[in-house]
């Protein structure tokens, strides 16, 4: 500051930044400040942030792994579901087939039974018809015998009962 531009007092014109009398003060307080900031950061803030970031990274990794696992589980569950579905479908088919077979069997049995019954009934009926027919034949013979006897009597003939009978029998059988 040998020649002041305007020759005035130093503080008014000189640059405050080049006023070396304040340097020790500024440097001292700067060093204090920097050391304090450094200690705050190094001891408290940075480890904390680093741990938080690491924790977050870990959480994210874990979550991704968990998601992967869940996805795998979901795939497994889907597979199991599909298997169960296929099983169920097969079982249903089996059951249906069995039911169908049973029904068929029942039906067959019922039909057979019905057929047998029908056959029995028709046999019986035939037998009855035959009986009736036989009965009727016998009755006819009887009636013929009676009629013949009555006719013979009415005509004034006399014939032995045995002769009439044999004659009627001859006629009816012929």
């Amino acid at each position: 500051m040998a020649t002041e531009p305007t020759g005035g007092e130093e503080a008014a014109t000189g640059l405050p930044q080049l006023d070396f009398s304040t340097f020790p003060n500024q440097i001292f307080w700067l060093l204090v400040t920097l050391v304090v900031i450094y200690l705050i950061l190094d001891r408290i803030a940075l480890p904390r942030i680093a741990s938080v970031l690491a924790e977050r990274q870990g959480t994210i990794t874990n979550d991704i792994a968990a998601a992967e696992e869940l996805k795998m589980k979901a795939a497994e569950a889907e597979k199991a579901y599909e298997k169960a579905l296929a099983d169920a479908r097969a079982e249903a088919q089996e059951i249906a087939a069995k039911a169908r077979a049973e029904i068929q069997e029942d039906l067959d049995a019922a039909i057979a039974k019905a057929d047998a019954e029908i056959a029995a009934r028709s046999a019986e009926s035939e037998k009855k018809i035959a009986e009736i027919r036989e009965g009727a034949d016998a009755a006819v013979v009887e009636v013929a015998k009676d009629t013949a006897a009555a006719l013979v009597a009415a005509l004034g003939g006399t014939g032995s009962a045995a002769a009439i009978e044999s004659a009627v029998e001859r006629k009816t059988k012929g």
């Binding site: 500024q26 400040t33 942030i49 938080v52």
Partner: peptide, 30 residues
């Protein structure tokens, strides 16, 4: 003097307090 508290000291202290507020109070929730 080299130890005199000046406005330099004041504003550096405010800077320190701001940094502490952001980095210590701000992250205390972890």
């Amino acid at each position: 003097h080299w130890w005199t508290p000046t406005n330099v000291t004041l504003w550096m202290a405010i800077a320190v307090l701001s940094i502490a507020a952001l980095f210590v109070l701000g992250t205390r929730g972890r």
